[in-house]
Simulated assay, not measured.
Amino acid sequence: MRAISGLWRWRRNPLRRGTDLAEAWVGLVALVLILVGGPVIGALTGGAAQDALQRTARAQLESRHLVTATVIRKLNRSPLDADPETSSGRDLRSRVVADWTAPDGTTHEGKVMADLQSPHAGDHFGMWTDLHGRTAARPLDSATATTHAVLAGTGAALLTAGVIEGARRFALWRMIRRRYARWDRAWDRAGPDWGRTGTGS
């Protein structure tokens, strides 16, 4: 709507100032840059993020392995854990002492988090380790990598649009300041009695 109301700046009329046309051009250039530059930068950023994240996901999947661990005993809740009265996604995990066999064939035992709500000795659960059996975080999956890449591309496009809009507003602010300065000089030249009857006669 604002762009439509600004179309008068393009028409030839005796009241149109040079700054009006300059403001119209600044607005048009900013609009084109937002509509073209924003999506292009977003696509380039998203594509680069997608490539990097997919490489990371493949590398993690190659270096991390899902093994089956066996519960030896459940550990008491840590005093640093949240209030047991509150329920959250963490309630589905429990701290246990477990043993597992690494992909290289070595046997390990240690304190780990199990995806079991109420584990008992002998229960089995899956956990991620590196090749030597050290516990590792779940590897990044392809879908999550794609989601992060889309978010990165969208963020880059929005940031680009914000920077362009900020530059447009700054340019308009400078033009308005110059216009006011010219008006002040014009008032000074008119003198203090410009409105009095008989001035200049």
Rank of each mutant, 00 (worst) to 15 (best):
R95P: 06
D184I: 08
L31S: 05
G191W: 08
S201H: 10
G47Y: 09
V150Y: 05
L15W: 12
P119Q: 08
M175F: 09
T154R: 10
W10S: 01
Q60E: 14
M1W: 06
R169E: 10
W173Q: 14
T144Y: 11
Y180F: 11
A3R: 10
A82K: 13
R179K: 15
I176W: 11
E165P: 01
D51C: 04
R90Y: 10
R64C: 00
R134S: 12
D99I: 07
P79Y: 12
V36M: 09
L75I: 00
D130H: 11
P84C: 09
H108M: 00
G155A: 15
W100V: 02
S88F: 04
L92K: 13
R9H: 09
D83G: 07
G122D: 11
D20H: 05
L92G: 09
A186I: 10
V32Y: 03
T68L: 14
A121Y: 03
A102S: 15
R2D: 12
R12S: 15
E109M: 04
G47E: 02
T45Y: 05
T197C: 07
W25V: 03
D193R: 04
A149R: 03
A82C: 14
T19D: 05
S87V: 11
D188G: 14
G27S: 07
R16Y: 02
S118V: 11
Q60I: 11
T144E: 13
A49G: 06
A24K: 00
F125L: 07
R179F: 02
M175W: 03
H148C: 04
L44I: 01
A167F: 08
V112T: 02
F125G: 00
G6D: 11
I176N: 12
R12C: 07
R17L: 15
M113S: 12
A30I: 01
W100D: 01
S201C: 08
I176G: 14
D193E: 08
S94C: 10
D188H: 15
W194G: 05
A49H: 01
R55K: 07
Q54P: 01
D141I: 00
R90V: 10
T144W: 06
A171R: 00
T160F: 05
D81V: 00
V71G: 03
S88D: 15
L66T: 07
R182E: 15
A149M: 02
W183V: 13
R9W: 02
T86Y: 06
D20Y: 03
T129H: 02
L80S: 12
R169G: 03
E23V: 04
